[in-house]
Design a protein around this nucleic acid. Structure first.
Lengths: 214, 214, 214, 214
DNA sequence: GATGAATGAGATTTCATTCAT
DNA sequence: TATGAATGAAATCTCATTCAT
């Protein structure tokens, strides 16, 4: 890579970082190209040269943000063997990820509000998602060991994991008011991780019992 | 109420309806006053006469949408006596509300993305919320009957109920892709209601057991 | 005059008073019909019924304001006989009038900025102006008594009287800054009246001398 | 200065010239940004890029117009030595300036009608004013040579000079009607310059005499 | 006569995008 | 590649005026 190319890459990265801040904060419509350029310390014409349009830049940001999920892979493979503990860790890791990546949460929200348009157009769903991948494996393994019944609906577990984790951050502003607490506090997050884990496990066991009694 | 006043109310209502559609769809920034006026079949000046600014109109819509929660009261008071059945009904009612009121879901999302600014400014949190009110009562009653342990963390139940219900609709666009199903279908919603109920109950019982064994 | 007519007159007067405040303060373009109506506590439609248009109302105000000059007549006829004292009094009266009628000063300024359009259209120049009328008489009388030379240019006296009096109030905002004093203070006004009088007299005498020596 | 910068300056100058015409003619409120842009042959967005707002542009024009006073410096330093002649020249120069710069007169009028708001905000009073500066020097010198008494109130001279000169142009539209002459004519201006000078001198001498007799 | 609602045209300002260098 | 100037379209909001009762 030549010096020139490296400079170009640096420029693009600066733009993307700036754009991530702006887009995640204000969305595709609330955000201003001027502001992105200003924060990236480049001029608008350059931004357009590299990304063609505001919308394309937005999509690039979406992809970039989503890709970070992939970085969880290492953490996820090194989980304990016991499936209860594994599940607990998985929830923990997901919560931590959402806590560390507020722009992920917000971009997903913008996407949902926008009919997941860019999400679909850029095939973001294909992005490696170690959390869900591992949840699937946990269930599969448990099934094999008959820890959970064959009939378990793994979608419900996925939906519950996502709901309890994602919603905690996505709706934090209103939830804080509703429960009258600062849910950002480590203590409260910890409690919620615990409860989420218990819920998932309880759901599994409940099903198990039903299965047994059936 | 005079004829004149009735006409005025009708005009305001037309504007509010139009604004609700536009704001819930595109948010405060993505939406255009021109379009709201066009849909309401009034001119912009009139809209400004009645609502002063785009932002005030937005807040009015937020309040209006949120107020609909209150209409659930009748349904909620007529619940069965058994607390398990009650909980099931509550989840069912909430899911149905969110299904019937997509603009509620979206407005809450916009608010969260915007730091719940208008939510706070208009004291929307004070709005009657029969769902959460009833959930509180269910837990209280259960406690009295010792169906659930004293130590139960009711916040976790609230957060779970909201998360599992709200997130199902708020993130539907991306969830549909992730689970590869159309979650809007009655069948899938029904399953999710079932799972959510079971989760809540299992969580309660789990705690109960822990309590017992402790 | 019937009760109804009296009410109507009262309404018109209220509008005119309000309009005078607004127009003199902000001019024809800076002022808002809404505001005039609000201050007059009538609605706009009524205002239009009585005055047809913003511009006509403006002209009405101009005439009204200018007419107040006429009220000086009584004061002016009762002047002392000595022409020096008369002149002094005249200056004093004019200063007092301008001090008491800031809207006169401002309306004349707006008119000048606007090419005296309304001034001409409404023939405001025809309005009785006891100050100038009396100044003319003073000069005439003085001429007869040979107190001043025949050749005196009375226009110069008129222009000086107006300039020294009017400009003191019309440019007060900038003059205050230039001379670093509050020219509104009675003390400073008094000094200026004195100086203006002396100037007029000195001018007369100077001319006289020239005449004499010629 | 690069070519680019020169172009930019040219654009700004074109806008300022256009704005001066419009603002001086119609004032801050009567004037339209559209029109300024049209006359300057640029589009509105560019105008805003360079000047931020209509009001800032107005202030820039005010400063620009006022600065022209400074250009009189050369003329003013080369005055004759005799103080009577000096004074005469000063009046002549000031009249000529006001005649040549109608937008100066009008901007000062707008400012006074607007409470000298922009005048104060931009510290326009600090602008070099060779006329008043020189008038001060003339009086000082005269005092030293005892041509005029120590007690002379120089403010009165300043106010008279400004009043007689400025008012001649600021109120020309109404004065023309009052005196029934076209005061713009060179002949009439000349007479007025003569009268103003005599007035100032007469005032000085009158005071002198008083002083002498005292 | 009097009112409050309603209107159309237009004001200032903003924004995504392109041009010229 | 990179830049600052420039643009056209459109956004929010305002205002003199008229309508309907």
């Amino acid at each position: 890579m030549t010096k020139q190319e490296m400079r170009t890459e640096a420029t693009k990265k600066a733009i993307l970082q700036s754009a991530e801040q702006e887009f995640s904060e204000k969305g595709l419509y609330g955000c201003r190209v001027d502001e992105i350029a200003r924060r990236a310390k480049v001029n608008k014409a350059l931004l357009y040269r590299h990304f063609n349009s505001k919308e394309e830049l937005y999509k690039e940001v979406l992809v970039r943000v989503y890709t970070r999920l992939g970085d969880l892979e290492e953490q996820v493979i090194n989980l304990k063997t016991d499936y209860e503990l594994k599940l607990r860790d998985l929830v923990q890791i997901y919560f931590q990820f959402l806590y560390d990546n507020p722009s992920f949460v917000r971009m997903v929200m913008w996407e949902n509000l926008n009919g997941a348009k860019s999400f679909k157009e850029r095939g973001v769903a294909e992005t490696k998602n170690p959390i869900l991948h591992e949840l699937g494996r946990i269930i599969d393994e448990a099934r094999l060991r008959s820890d959970v019944p064959e009939t378990i609906d793994s979608d419900q577990l996925i939906l519950t994991l996502i709901a309890c984790s994602f919603n905690y951050f996505s709706n934090m502003n209103t939830l804080n008011i509703i429960v009258g607490k600062d849910l950002m506090l480590a203590e409260n997050r910890e409690k919620r991780i615990q409860a989420t884990t218990e819920m998932l496990l309880a759901y599994l066991k409940e099903r198990e019992q039903k299965q047994t009694h059936a």
